[in-house]
């Protein structure tokens, strides 16, 4: 064996990326902000479970919950939550045409049509839920 032989060990090319890379461009920031709004999605899911439990327990429990919801600090927090969820929905629906490229009769459906269909679905879902939940 050649005494000068040494096994070739390639080194990974991994450039160091600063932790705050996502603050350097608006598009990067928007991406990370959208991903982080998933925390608000999880919080809202917990709140829906809590609502179901308090409604099941009875009217006293429900009224206590509504009284907590109507405290100014809670209202402000939930308004911020709503804005965060709107941002989540809009940015999420806007990337739908990049992820979904349907074909009809062998032809690709235009991205604008996919986007409009998603916004129409959002509107219909919102309208139906409002109709179900409000007093007739």
């Amino acid at each position: 064996m050649n005494p000068e032989y040494s096994r070739h060990e390639p080194k990974w090319y991994r450039p160091k990326v600063p932790i705050f890379w996502w603050l350097k461009q608006w598009a990067y920031f928007k991406f990370v902000a959208r991903e982080l709004t998933s925390v608000l999605v999880a919080y809202s899911a917990v709140m829906l479970l809590v609502l179901f439990v308090v409604v099941d327990r009875g009217q006293v429990s429900y009224l206590e919950f509504v009284s907590w919801l109507s405290q100014p600090s809670v209202v402000v927090f939930h308004m911020a939550l709503f804005l965060g969820l709107l941002f989540h929905s809009v940015t999420w629906l806007n990337i739908a045409p990049m992820a979904i490229v349907p074909k009809v009769g062998g032809r690709i459906v235009p991205a604008k049509a996919v986007l409009l269909a998603h916004y129409a679905a959002w509107f219909v879902c919102s309208a139906v839920l409002t109709w179900v939940l409000i007093s007739k």
Binding site: V41, S44, A45, M47, L48, L51, V66, L69, S70, V74, V75, H78, M79, L81, F82, L85, L86, H88, S89, W92, L93, A96, A121, W122, C125, S126, L129, T130, L133, I134
Partner: peptide, 19 residues
Amino acid sequence: MMSALFLPILVAVLFIASP
């Protein structure tokens, strides 16, 4: 996708507008 479609209106109706 489901959360994008349903959550804003649920939060607006149940946790803001109703209280």
